[in-house]
Design a protein around this nucleic acid. Structure first.
Lengths: 315, 315
DNA sequence: AAACGGCGATAAGAAATTCTGATCGATCGA
DNA sequence: TCGATCGATCAGAATTTCTTATCGCCGTTT
């Protein structure tokens, strides 16, 4: 009779491509793992693994079985998560994925809130691009994502939390006559500096400015917003900053900040989880905290803009 | 560590509501099952079952865990099915669900074809209404459905096979001037006789005749087409028959058959299976045979219509 | 060419798990 | 109160699974 152990071992082999390493990872001896795999192959009547000199290679059937096994193992883990949640909400670790244009700003505000409200909760945070996050969410490596919506995927459910406006960051001292209008002309003198490919903020900024063409856009591709802000501060161009980043990135008047004309462009920040996840209540509770943290991050933006306008009026 | 055995036992209890019966069903002793369940409850840290005088009752958490367990067990079975398919196509038994307005006509034609082409294949056929079939498909009791499309469900995939036209069945001797037009007036003298609620053919027939109201429609509700044909033969009204049924139901001139004006109304017969099913290739192969069987069933219809027209011209 | 090293299979005995059969205790109905 | 039913408990048996030791294969190294 098929057992979970066999599926666990197969999954380990699929991941490591090596009987010995897989066995170590499963905390059993290599023969134990080998025998279970043989048993599995015999029960299924199909060869799953090609034993080669340089390790183990899955056959076509093996890959398909491993894919299904992984799915099953995820669902088994979900049962455990569900039980833990219903026994004691928000105590099991949450593996949270966050996009790079959110993480450095929101996490410092979020973690104290979490510690205060759910002292037992452990947040394991991973920061990478949307596409990578989604892949890891689906394969069960992550439990929850904090990113920019919308996200369309049949196996994923989302909940939007809060809007995060875009502001224009200019070299310091640049004058503004009221709100900025987002047009390509804006970037005739100053190049638009953007993050490297893969960041959703890059695409959003291009959309906001009605730029399809990469003209006047620096494809140099920085990998963090603070790098870009450095460049802006040195007069190398302009960029769009999300409101949550202003407090950190525009402090001390390093760059000038301008608001866009209504309707102000914005991104929607929200959560995403596997549709089958048993911890939706946990996630909803966390969502409340995250929204609060985001609001905290956005607060300095208003001050900075007001402050700057006051200074301009004085000159 | 969670095991499949525990999930199997829990599933059995969920089905039988009784430790002893569940144990019998799993072919183990009652203590063995009890102990595994206790183990499971301890691992999950949640009580899953209320032990009551009159048997076992799942707690709320128990129901949720059982639901997930059932899903997992289905997917495990799918792995076995997949392996068997890739080892030898179309040899593992197929549990096929068929709607009542198809089964008695198509199966007699289908089974010989199956025996000829796939002598090792065992078809386990179940006949009931669409809704019931869909429920059993999803919970894994059935593998494949033969029914009238469309079927909309996120977990189900379908493939249409063939069109099956509707014909008008009248008391014998009734004259027709060419093709019939499907209007409510058609049923001013003769009532429209239909199957009982739940048959998709009932809804389709009402739609074909542009009848929303149940006026002039006999809600008496027969449970089989041949009953209705009996009634039609005795002058109690008219009905719509699918083309595949004509050979059996209208043989010997028991009832008059009329074709509808173009565009002739028809239903689409097709297959449905779980989107996760590993046996799609099997099903596609079976689909070919089923389409052939349906075509065979439809053949007599043309002859009977032609024959009848010839007789009318003679009188 | 011979020795080596990495890899998975095999073998035998030990350890752990799981099962059975007998029995118990509780509860409900007669 | 008795009897019946149901699930829990217990002790020993049966089965499964694991570990350690070792083998055989085949590239690589010396």
């Amino acid at each position: 009779m098929l057992s979970l152990k066999q599926l666990r071992y197969l999954d380990a082999i699929a991941r490591h491509g090596h009987f010995g390493k897989a066995a170590t990872h499963c905390a059993v001896s290599q023969p134990a793992l080998s025998m279970q795999i043989q048993e599995l192959e015999q029960e299924l009547g199909v060869q799953l693994i090609e034993r080669r000199r340089q390790g183990a290679q899955l056959t076509a059937a093996g890959r398909e079985v491993a894919r299904r096994a992984q799915r099953i193992l995820n669902e088994v883990r979900d049962i455990g998560d569900f039980a833990r949640q219903s026994a004691a909400p928000l105590t099991a670790p949450v593996r949270l994925g966050v996009i790079p244009t959110v993480a450095p700003y929101v996490l410092p505000a979020l973690l104290p809130l979490v510690r205060a409200d759910y002292p037992l909760l452990v947040l394991q945070v991973r920061e990478t691009h949307t596409q990578q996050l989604l892949a890891e969410l689906i394969d069960g490596t992550l439990d929850l994502l904090l990113l920019a919506l919308p996200v369309e995927h049949p196996e994923i459910e989302t909940q939007s939390l809060i809007e995060d406006r875009f502001l224009l960051a200019m070299p310091p001292g640049r004058k503004l006559r009221g709100r900025v209008r987002a047009t390509p002309e804006l970037f005739e003198h100053d190049r638009l500096l953007l993050l490297e490919e893969g960041h959703c903020l890059r695409e959003q900024a291009l959309a906001v400015c009605n730029l399809r063409q990469i003209e006047g856009v620096d494809t140099f591709g920085a990998s963090s917003l603070s790098t870009i802000v450095q460049m802006v501060a040195n007069g190398m161009g302009m960029t769009l900053l999300p409101e949550i980043s202003i407090g950190l990135e525009a402090r001390g008047g390093r760059v000038g900040i301008g608001r866009f004309a209504d309707p102000e462009p914005a991104r929607t920040l929200g959560l995403a989880w596997r549709a089958t996840s048993p911890r939706k209540e946990d996630f909803a509770a966390l969502g409340g905290l995250i929204a609060a943290a985001v609001r905290k991050c956005q607060k300095p933006a208003a001050d900075i803009v007001a402050d700057q306008r006051a200074r301009e009026r004085r000159t």
